[in-house]
């Protein structure tokens, strides 16, 4: 498959008199291939939006190489801009313009037939409210309008930064269906989001960024598989005895309130066999599969801790100043990003 987005060694430092120097993205790599629905994940302040802004020519990176649809970005972005639809963070629109007028002006500026306006309003569920002023829209409606503006061009590549912001559960589901239908029609979609369950449902590939660096990338299935510790939850009579028996066959077992957490169970049937042979009957055996949330929290080190409030958007230390080296968890194994 051909690369739609390629980013290599992207670095961006923000400097301000008040806040000093802050490295937002530090040697970041990303690869999105045609036809993918690619999730772009990272905690707040990890560099997601900066990366997307750099890719779209809105911020100037310090170094690195980027290309979009085969054209170097941002130098030749103008050549492919007509094929890329994007929303970055929460786009703002003039409050006293109607949704329809907002889209029509964008269509005129971009040389897109204005007939597309009604089609995209319908597509995002805003057709009935298209003639209302934007200032009367809810956050979710503004988000829909933003997505509509990105769809106007009938893009080959759609970049959506937090598209579910402000959407209610039904809206999130509609957005998911919309992305799926776009993907089915061959559009490559990149979604940055915090709603990990959604990403897991929608995306087939994922890139996870933490502190401005890529910490994992690849097909969602493979990323999750890399974190599968082959754990099972087992409910059984005589849990202490069962734990002893399972430890004897080389499994790690923890007992909590009568329930066993069994690790290293490559073949869950070994558990039932081992316990059954000793007359212990298993009441429940549930394989514990890692989900994107647990992988994300582990990779980004953002697991909530009751005693330590997590700080948002901290600066990335330059590699030579970092206390501990990054661990390369890139399951694709194509490019290490460790320090």
């Amino acid at each position: 498959m051909s690369a739609v987005i390629e980013i290599e060694g992207l670095r961006k430092t923000y400097r301000s008199v008040r806040k000093g120097r802050r490295v937002a993205v530090d040697g970041f790599d990303m690869l999105v291939e045609a036809g993918q629905v690619h999730g772009f994940l990272g905690p707040n302040g990890s560099g997601k939006t900066t990366t997307l802004r750099a890719l779209l020519g809105l911020v100037t990176p310090d170094s690195g190489r980027m290309s979009v649809l085969g054209e170097p970005a941002p130098e030749r972005l103008v050549r492919v801009a007509g094929r890329v639809g994007a929303i970055v963070e929460s786009p703002q629109f003039f409050g006293n313009f109607t949704g329809r007028r907002t889209l029509r002006l964008l269509a005129v500026a971009g040389g897109v037939p204005t007939a597309r306006v009604d089609a995209v309003l319908e597509q995002v569920g805003l057709h009935e409210r298209g003639d209302d002023r934007v200032k009367g829209y809810s956050l979710g409606m503004k988000q829909r309008l933003a997505v509509a503006s990105a769809l106007l061009k009938e893009p080959e590549l759609l970049i959506l930064d937090e598209p579910a912001n402000g959407l209610d559960p039904a809206g999130i589901r509609e957005m998911r269906d919309l992305v799926r239908s776009l993907a089915d029609s061959g559009v490559t979609v990149v979604i940055s989001s915090h709603i990990l369950a959604e990403i897991q449902l929608i995306c087939d590939h994922v890139t996870i960024v933490s502190d401005g660096r890529r910490v994992a990338a690849g097909p969602v299935r493979e990323v999750l598989a890399g974190f599968d510790r082959h754990e099972c939850r087992v409910r059984v009579t005589e849990p202490e005895r069962a734990a002893q028996l399972l430890r004897e066959v080389g499994m790690s077992v923890a007992v909590h309130e009568g329930v066993l957490a069994v690790g290293g169970a490559q073949e869950p049937e070994l558990i039932t066999r081992t316990l059954g042979e000793q007359g212990l009957w298993v009441g429940e055996l549930t394989p514990i599969r890692p989900d994107l949330e647990s992988v994300f929290l582990e990779l980004t080190g953002s697991t909530p801790h009751p005693a330590l409030p997590r700080q948002v958007g901290g600066s990335v230390l330059p590699a030579e100043e970092a206390d501990t080296p990054m661990i390369d968890l890139d399951v694709t194994g194509d490019r290490g990003v460790g320090a």
Partner: peptide
């Protein structure tokens, strides 16, 4: 000023990347 402040310019640049 209002366009820069409200993000209108960013919207436009996503369509026409020539600053």
């Amino acid at each position: 000023g209002a366009d820069l402040n409200s993000g209108g310019v960013v919207n436009l640049l996503l369509w026409r990347p020539g600053r």
